[in-house]
Amino acid sequence: MRRVLVLVSVLCAVLVSLCACAWGGADEGGGRPPGAPTGVTAAAGSATSVHVMWNAVSTDHGVRVYEVYRGPTKVKEVPGSAHMVDVTMLKPSTSYAFTVRARDTEGRLGPPSRAVRATTPAVAAADRSAPTRPGGLRGRAVGSRAVQLSWSGATDDRAVVSYDIHQGDTKIHSVGGNQTATVVTGLRPGTRYSFTVRARDAADNLSAATGTVRVTTPGTDDGRGTAPTGFRATTHREDGAHHLDLSWVPPRTDGVVVEYEVHLDGRRATSLVYGGSAPRERATYSFYLGPENGAVHRVRIRGRLPDGTWGGFSTERTVTTGARD
């Protein structure tokens, strides 16, 4: 009887140990997944599309992608630097529910956001008439990181379903056709921005753009907070020519920086765009300099931030071809 009790005690201890290891491994090795996105909104963009937006999720390892779901089905996946998407190929006169989930750079998927609903309008047959151009676009800074825009409503032979807001050449937001004002957030202090607005009807006909309004956010931004850090530059010789080798730590921003611009001797020399997952810890890049020995070059780099503006320049480095090849 004593032997049986001893065996039972040993088995219980082993099971407890295994359970503790399993829970500890998941907690310590994997870490916490991202939280649920907040501020999720959905608005019909046309009879066959819905514009979904959300706030950025803050996480220790950064967000790699956001996954957008229509009901239980994943319909879109966008980079972590994006906080909006147009879900297309929908049915007219139909109500849809959307949720958003964040997946971090370690592959962990966070919980879904609260569900938001949008109903697409009916489509008008053979509607080829675009809305009129919205007018009177005005803008003013609201603090150092937001701009309020307002405009005069457009008209359409049927109805204006939505307004698209563009920052430069990029669509950054969409609001319902009954709105003639919005607030653009996530901007930088001391930065000049350009905005235009276009109207869209249920058949996806798009109006001409308003005139451009330019707004400068108050405050100062010397670029140091948005510049790549740990910037290094060396050269190597290969196939009879010298190449410049760069490495840097990407700026810590709300989203992933996927585009960089390299300046050589005070001028833009080249740029690079990451088509897949952009590095978040240390990035590297090399390009051709030429065959000349002893050439002295100054080099620095900057990234295009998720808000569409260029961040600050890194520390400038000086290299001499052949010095350490």
Rank of each mutant, 00 (worst) to 15 (best):
D325V: 01
H166Y: 09
T182N: 08
V10K: 11
R158A: 12
L289P: 00
P134G: 11
A323H: 00
D164Q: 13
R237G: 09
D156E: 06
L305H: 00
G45V: 05
F195W: 03
V65A: 05
D245P: 03
Y66A: 04
T59P: 10
M53A: 15
P134C: 12
A130H: 08
L15D: 06
F313Y: 15
T132D: 12
A47M: 12
S95C: 07
P34N: 02
P251F: 01
H236P: 07
E292I: 15
Y260R: 03
R302V: 02
G230W: 11
R302D: 03
V147S: 02
Y288A: 11
V6C: 06
D60N: 10
L137V: 14
A124M: 08
A146M: 03
K171S: 00
T196L: 13
A283V: 03
L90E: 04
A82D: 06
D157H: 11
V116Y: 05
A22C: 08
S247A: 15
K74A: 12
D254I: 13
T220E: 14
G39H: 02
S49T: 09
G35F: 01
C19E: 10
V57Q: 07
L5N: 09
G71C: 05
A44H: 02
F231T: 00
S81M: 04
A283H: 00
S207L: 15
P279Q: 07
T99V: 11
G219R: 05
P92D: 09
G211C: 10
Y274G: 01
P92F: 13
A22K: 07
A199M: 06
L5G: 08
R3H: 03
D27N: 13
G35A: 06
R252K: 11
T59H: 15
V100M: 08
T99Q: 12
T226W: 07
V52A: 09
V257M: 05
A209F: 06
T253C: 07
V296E: 15
V50W: 06
S194D: 14
D239W: 10
S247N: 15
A97D: 02
T210I: 01
T235E: 09
A43P: 00
V175N: 02
L187A: 00
P131N: 07
V6F: 14
S95W: 05
D222K: 13
F287E: 02
G322H: 01
L272I: 13
H242R: 06
S194H: 15
G39D: 04
S144V: 09
P112G: 13
D169S: 12
R158N: 05
P134K: 09
R140F: 14
T41R: 12
S150F: 04
T309R: 07
Y288M: 08
L246T: 01
F313L: 12
T217Q: 05
G219S: 02
P131V: 08
Y193T: 06
G29Q: 10
A42I: 01
M1L: 10
G39C: 10
G266Y: 07
R70C: 08
G135P: 03
V63Q: 02
V63L: 04
H51D: 04
P291Y: 11
G168T: 02
S152K: 14
D27F: 15
G276R: 08
W310M: 11
E67S: 11
N205P: 01
T210V: 08
G25M: 15
G290K: 08
A233K: 05
D201K: 01
L244Y: 07
